[in-house]
Simulated scan of single mutants.
Amino acid sequence: MKIEARAKINLTLNVTGRRDNGYHDLELIFQPVSLCDTLYIEKKPDQSLAFSCSVKLFENEDNLVCKTYRAMAQRYPQIGGLSVFLKKRIPSGAGMAGGSTDAAAMIRALDQMYGLHMTWEQKKEIAVSLGADVAACLLTQASIGRGIGEELTKIDTDFTYSILVLKPKVSFSTAQMYRAIDESGQITQRYLSQEAAAGLETKDLDRICASLYNVFEEAIPEKAVIRELKQALTRSGAIGSLMTGSGSCVYGIYRNRRMRDRAYRMLKKHYQAYACEAVNRPQQ
């Protein structure tokens, strides 16, 4: 089996509170994009996992692909041995859910390969045990996430639009970013997820771009780096730009693919750049 694991960007990201257990309450929009990793999976006769990756740094048993296999095999004993190769394209330390989406793709693949007929709740239970973003990565359309990100409401849209993502040389630690939020007491004051969702539903790019918000932009240590990327995207024709997740990637939204492609040709000379489209398809 060959299965794609799509990256995500956030159109909004609000930190609304901190729980006693250290987790944070969030309100955010997950938007799948066409940039993806690919998993190549084959069954093998013995009861073990042979895992390899195009990026050797990630080729270890702590990779979320391996953790997903172990969690699924424990729950479903009919799952047998596999040989899995992960082709990485999504940048790491980027805020694009690269590891989470690989885990979600593995859940979907095992469900199909072994005819498990898992319900959404069964998939979600496994997903949440692996990470807060994994459940959202199971979806093929934008969703609003609440709680720690696992309480999902799908947005009724099939809107496709053009995006350019820039990755700076620096990466930010998610844990460090949350600590910065805690220390600053920076709790979101701008709740724009419903407005952005309405923009997706009505296919109104201006409304979406007017609603872009990420509270972590106020907490990042390298503000000048993010500001530079946002300015570069705006100068190239983007009508809205935002850092995604806890960073460090910044994306721009363009009115059409032609404008995005022109910006990509210009900016790839100076930055690590990824051209992609928003993906919003009814759940299969």
Score class of each variant (00 low, 15 high):
K2Y: 10
I3T: 05
K8S: 11
V15L: 07
R18K: 14
D20A: 14
D20C: 03
Y23Q: 02
L26M: 10
L28Q: 08
P32C: 11
V33Y: 10
C36F: 15
C36Q: 15
L39Y: 15
Y40W: 14
E42I: 03
K43M: 12
K43W: 06
K44R: 12
K44C: 05
Q47P: 09
L49S: 01
C53F: 11
C53V: 11
V55D: 15
E61L: 10
D62H: 11
D62E: 15
C66A: 12
K67D: 04
Y69D: 12
Y69C: 13
P77L: 08
Q78Y: 07
Q78W: 04
G80E: 02
L82K: 07
S83H: 04
S83N: 10
F85G: 01
L86M: 11
I90E: 15
I90K: 11
I90N: 12
S92W: 12
G93D: 06
A94Q: 02
A94K: 02
M96T: 02
G98E: 13
G98R: 02
G99P: 00
S100P: 03
T101P: 07
A103C: 07
I107L: 13
R108G: 12
R108W: 15
A109T: 09
L110P: 09
L110I: 13
Q112V: 11
M113K: 08
G115M: 08
L116Y: 09
H117L: 15
H117T: 05
M118T: 14
E121I: 08
K124G: 06
I126C: 04
A127L: 11
S129I: 11
G131R: 03
C137N: 11
L138N: 06
Q141H: 14
A142F: 04
S143D: 01
G145F: 00
E150I: 04
T153E: 10
D156M: 13
Y161T: 07
I163F: 03
L164V: 00
V165C: 02
V165P: 00
L166D: 04
V170P: 03
F172G: 00
S173M: 09
Q176H: 12
M177C: 05
M177F: 02
I181K: 09
G185M: 09
G185E: 07
I187Y: 14
T188W: 00
R190V: 14
Y191F: 13
L192S: 11
S193Y: 02
Q194C: 06
E195N: 14
A196Q: 03
A196M: 05
G199E: 04
L200G: 00
K203G: 03
D206I: 09
D206E: 08
R207Y: 12
I208F: 08
S211K: 06
L212Y: 10
V215K: 10
E217L: 06
E222A: 06
V225T: 13
V225K: 03
E228S: 06
E228I: 02
L229M: 09
K230A: 09
K230G: 10
R235Q: 14
S236R: 11
G240V: 06
G240C: 03
S241Y: 09
M243R: 08
S246V: 00
S248G: 12
C249Y: 07
V250T: 08
I253Q: 01
I253H: 00
R255F: 13
R257Y: 07
R260C: 07
D261H: 10
Y264P: 00
M266W: 14
M266V: 11
L267Q: 02
K269L: 13
Q272D: 13
A273C: 01
A275Q: 06
A275L: 03
C276G: 01
E277P: 00
